[in-house]
Amino acid sequence: MKKLQNVVIKGTKEGLTLHLNDSCSFEELKKELYWKLSENYRSQEGQQQITVKVQVGNRYLTDTQIEELKELITQTKNLVVDSVSSNVMTKEEVEQMKQEQKIVSVSSIVRSGQVVKVPGDLLLIGDVNPGGTVMAGGNIFVMGVLKGIAHAGCYGNTEAIIAASIMKPSQLRIGEFINRAPDHYTDQENREMECAYINENNQIMIDRLQVLIQLRPNLTRLERGW
């Protein structure tokens, strides 16, 4: 019978994918990984770096074990770990995901000095005054005038958007990207609702809300009505 490989290395256009067996011990896994990388990917002077994605299947890894794998892989110098993915999640991670997928509705005026922050999407029915701040792990929808600061995707989600009935922010943030307010605004009294999003050049753009149909087709979680 052919011995099951604990480490399978596959090349892709983006780099390498390491498929690690989830039924062997972690120590066995590390030994075979070290041996295969040493045999096939010895570092050479001037060699271009290769991006590595690690898939561990149904194995749960602690933060310490993840760091051990990363250190083992990057010992070859020319390998850079892009991600380590597992099919297994802790109860805490599941609960956090559930919180981040919730839509929190708030009916209020956010005044100067106030901060409203939610883990998921925020639906604010009211205005954000200058000096006020709204933050969300997901998207932000302001059914009113946005004159303060809005930070969507505050945990790193760059696919998040910010929408407002009247868009006059002092600052917009999506993920780590920041867009300062323009020096002046055009009269928006008869204009449509607007949205802010990150384009392919990692710039925050403001456009009509209708563009999201093409840009973020999975924005809504409701597929059909009655």
Rank of each mutant, 00 (worst) to 15 (best):
K147E: 15
E92L: 06
M135S: 08
S112L: 04
E27M: 05
S105C: 10
G153F: 00
V110T: 02
Q65P: 00
E194K: 10
R59F: 05
E14M: 07
V54Q: 03
M143P: 00
V94I: 13
R221K: 15
L16W: 15
E68G: 03
T76K: 12
L124V: 07
R173M: 15
S83P: 01
Q171Y: 01
E176L: 09
T17M: 10
N21C: 12
T74Q: 15
V7R: 09
N218L: 06
M205G: 02
L215Y: 10
K3Y: 10
V94K: 14
N58E: 13
D183L: 11
G138H: 02
K13F: 09
G15P: 08
H151C: 00
E192K: 08
E39N: 07
S170M: 08
C195E: 07
Q188V: 03
G126A: 06
T158D: 12
S112C: 08
S108R: 15
L212I: 12
R59Q: 06
S108D: 15
T62H: 09
M97V: 10
G153H: 04
A152L: 01
I66M: 13
Y185E: 09
Q101G: 10
G148E: 07
T186C: 02
V128H: 02
M97R: 14
L61V: 05
A136P: 00
T62L: 07
N201V: 05
N202Y: 09
I125W: 11
E27V: 14
S107T: 15
I103Q: 12
A152Y: 02
K53T: 11
Q96C: 00
M167I: 08
G113W: 08
D82G: 03
T62P: 00
E223V: 07
V142W: 05
T133F: 02
K168V: 02
T186S: 10
Q101F: 07
P130G: 04
S86Q: 10
L4Y: 12
F26R: 05
D183C: 03
I73Q: 04
H184L: 08
G132K: 00
L222V: 12
G15V: 08
K53Q: 12
E71D: 14
Y197I: 00
C24W: 08
N40Y: 12
L215N: 09
V8Y: 08
T17N: 15
I174C: 04
Q114I: 01
N87E: 12
Q214T: 14
A196V: 07
I178K: 14
E176V: 06
G11W: 14
K2T: 09
I166Y: 09
K102S: 11
N199R: 06
E159V: 01
K77Q: 12
A152I: 04
I50R: 03
S105N: 12
Q101L: 12
G144H: 06
E28Y: 08
I174F: 04
G225W: 13
V115T: 14
